[in-house]
Design a protein around this nucleic acid. Structure first.
Lengths: 120, 120
DNA sequence: GGCATGCTCAACCAGTTGGTTGATTAACTA
DNA sequence: TAGTTAATCAACCAACTGGTTGAGCATGCC
């Protein structure tokens, strides 16, 4: 199991430590030691977290002498967001009842009600 | 662990069966049996998956006679998307170098280059 | 070469996850 | 009352997770 990319990405993001690492990497590349510094856990534990992020495709790792700099690769995040966006109408009033994203781009309809019970 | 909402939501979405259930519920409320039908696993397994989704706040459950209809509640998805959106500039060219979402709303600048190395 | 630094690998452990089967509760039906 | 249907609870299991410690490898510096 866990073979599909989307599952790996969501699983990788399901840990606060790993999300913090992603947030840190948004400020630029960092070494494993730099990434580990803020956390009350061993370097090896961080190394494992990085491996999870790497397998999810969220980071890439270089080689500079004895350092293994990590940098963010948010491509998989786009896919994850796209999956979630399909359900935007369930949290965003503008999408209600229109049933399409394109419609919303042309015309914002701030009506509400009928937030549930869309047949099926 | 797993106390924070965001972690619960991502963890809930990290399973293909649960994502399929969410997709199904986008077409309307459904009973446990209806949700279980397409999957090659026991009703009890689906019941467990529903409990995970419920604890993540992604579904709510009613009571109608002996049925427990499930319906989608995508509120937590909005939070998850908002978290991910913070890294949009790493996958969306328009956000490059501008460093802000507001800027992008006023003016689209389709320039590119400098996709990495944004200091720290 | 010898040694410190940066990091990974390997083994281990407790807790969680995702599935199973069997029993049980709750509500309707006859 | 008995029986059917819908769903959960409980116990069990194998596999995975997230952490640990200790050993080992790769690189740069003296």
């Amino acid at each position: 199991m866990m073979t599909d990319q989307l599952s790996s990405v969501f699983a990788a993001l399901a840990d606060p430590t790993r999300r913090a690492i992603v947030a840190r990497l948004a400020d630029g590349a960092a070494t494993v030691n730099e990434l580990a510094a803020p956390f009350p856990m061993s370097l090896q534990a961080i190394s494992k977290h990085l491996k999870v992020l790497e397998r999810a495709g969220l980071i890439t790792r270089g080689r500079e002498a004895q350092w293994r700099p990590c940098r963010l690769d948010a491509g998989p995040l786009r896919d994850a967001v796209e999956w979630m966006e399909r359900y935007r109408r369930f949290w965003d009033e503008r999408y209600d009842r229109l049933g399409g994203y394109l419609r919303e781009l042309q015309e914002q309809t701030p009506r509400k009600e009928q937030n549930n019970e869309q047949a099926g």
